[in-house]
Amino acid sequence: MSGRTPNQKAWWLVLPVVVLVAFNAVIPLMTVVNYSVQETFGDNQFFFEGVTWFEQILHSSRFHDALQRQLLFTAIILAIEIPLGVAIALAMPKRGAWASVCLVLMAMPLLIPWNVVGAMWNIFALPDIGLLGHSLNALGFDYNFTRQPFSAWSTLIAMDVWHWTSLVVLLAYAGLSSIPDAFYQAAKIDGASAWAVFRYIQLPKMKRVLMIAVLLRFMDSFMIYTEAIVLTGGGPGNATSLLSIDLVKIALGQFDLGPAAAMSLIYFLIILLLSWVFYAVMTRDEAH
């Protein structure tokens, strides 16, 4: 590299983004860091506490339980949504009017506001009047998501799968559409089986978009709040109190700003670490 770029004025174009990020991310994050080492009783009076809140959160069984529930939830929905999304994308028509119909149908759940999704599933799953709850009970299943942890979990997972598998489908479908016909023709000449076509042509070509799908679904499911709070409110008991629900209970329910700030920082670091690990593992295979 020799010499400098003669015109550096383009850097000014980055300024709006810098300002936006500063106000919606950096400054709030700094404030959270400040709160995490202090105690407050309101009225903008703060008392320095050091790392007490971090110690308290790290040793709190309530946090451990919420983290375990969160990891389990994310693992389950990733294990369902990614393969299911790929399977649906493979089954969708590649061209013609039906392709557009399928795409529109697939995009619909993504257009519904999150709290509406929660409310819809809440009503849908009510054991006495909801279509799902009533039908399950009529079929002889003992189903009541407001009382049984297993029912609550199943409903929560079904709702997330219903809401978000479409995103994986659309991404996988975009990946599939980018494969030139020549690849399929070559596979046909070689007499490749459907599995071989999937394994050696479609899957490698979808890898990049699937990486984005896994990352997006991982991060979003780790931060799920609205749908879950509307559907189950974290209950029954604490059965579906995922990390974000527990965090809001501490911050706004109990108004413990210090512990809540420490918990959000630990939460943030876990998301950052796991996202980085996902990204590193997936790009590493790609580099080989």
Binding site: V51, F54, E55, L58, H59, I266, L269, L272, L273, W276, A280, T283, R284, A287, H288
Partner: peptide, 28 residues
């Protein structure tokens, strides 16, 4: 050694992330 492509900035990011977790684990 991790088999991933990194620049200086990536290495700083990983160092800071590692530092955060070293402190958290130490505290725990």
């Amino acid at each position: 050694v991790l088999g991933i492509d990194t620049t200086r900035g990536d290495r700083l990011f990983v160092s800071l992330l590692a530092a955060a977790f070293v402190h958290l684990l130490w505290l725990a």
